[in-house]
Simulated assay, not measured.
Amino acid sequence: MSKPRVAIVFGGRNSEHAVSLMGAGSVLESIDRTKYEVIPIGIAQDGRWVLASSGQRFAIEEGELPEVDASGAAIALPSGGDELVAYDPGSIPVELGSVDVVFPVMHGPFAEDGTIQGLLEMAGVRYVGSGVLASAVGMDKAYMKTVMAAAGLPIGPYVVVRDRDWRLDRERVHKEVEELGWPVFVKPARAGSSQGISKADDRDSLERAVEFARGFDPKVLVEAAIVGREIECAVLESLGDEPPAASRPGEVRVEGGQSFFDFEAKYYPDQMSLTVPAELPEAVAEELRAMAVLAFETLECEGLSRVDFFYTPEGKLIFNEINTMPGFTSLSVAPQLWAASGLTYPDLVDRLIQLALRRSPGLR
């Protein structure tokens, strides 16, 4: 019997392009090629889909972030079918055969936000991870908080700053933010990997922080600072009818001198530490794991998610956010949480592909 054909898709038209490549590099290195036929496909910054070239770089080298090498043969995925076709300039299109599943190791807008999931749904192709709705709501932090609060999860105070609010009613925005108390954290509503986030301690720094975040997204979220430890938990869909499983919780600490968990802390060496299991009372750890599963099920997630919380000195858990396609290098938090829970990175990759293969395309 032929091996399932898995297309690993990475890159994309957003600021998390490099993060996607780093995760894809780990997947390509770890996937069992005796079990799967692998097709690496990059999406360049200009939106072109290409077969990965032999010289494609996936890691940060000498401080330089990787990006998709767009010199490879162009790829098309016709709507309504699962046939990948490669196009070389001036040549006859070459059919690459049926793709059994797409593994989109992608983050941010036009990728993790339901965009590529909708494209694959229209093409009738199975894929790893959550569907359109869960991906879209999980990406938009404002709607995510609304949905999670409705499910009963504890949410910290925040203000949503939409483009029209900032342009036409800025004084009202300032007053609403001041009611949160200083400092606040300002972030793009629909970005990840800590892109565009900054801390504001007063009115002037708020102006700068909002303008900085608006460089990534015209919709901005301003959150009250929460004193507490950052505890994260990964959730994985069951292969059968059992409920989703939660990993052991882990505590993230910044080691590089940054005042919060920013991009460099997440992706540059020796900038963060992860303690698994987190030092928590057993009852708190179990409550956190149950809340993580509740968040996963509230959005009707599929595959894998990472759910982040704050644990305050008063002993309270506060939901921060859910990531429907978390950072996915072998050293990223979600894979490390599962490794500490008994599931190795190669086995996690295999599990996600098997989940996708068992899933029927379309409404479910």
Rank of each mutant, 00 (worst) to 15 (best):
E37C: 01
V38H: 10
I43R: 10
V50I: 12
S53V: 06
R57G: 13
E64A: 14
A70Y: 01
G80V: 10
G80N: 12
E83K: 11
G90E: 13
L96V: 02
F103P: 09
P104A: 11
H107D: 11
G108W: 00
P109H: 00
M122T: 11
A123S: 15
V128P: 03
V132F: 05
A134P: 00
A134D: 07
S135M: 01
A150S: 13
D165K: 05
W166Q: 09
D169V: 08
E176A: 15
E178P: 05
E179W: 05
A189V: 13
K199Q: 15
D204S: 15
L206W: 07
E207I: 12
A209T: 05
E211N: 14
A213H: 02
R214M: 13
A224P: 07
V227M: 09
A245G: 00
R253Q: 12
G256F: 02
S259A: 14
Y267I: 08
E282T: 14
L294V: 13
E297G: 09
R306Q: 09
E314V: 00
G315R: 06
L317Q: 10
V333S: 03
T344F: 00
Y345G: 03
Y345V: 04
Y345T: 03
P346G: 05
P346T: 01
P346E: 07
L352S: 01
L357G: 07
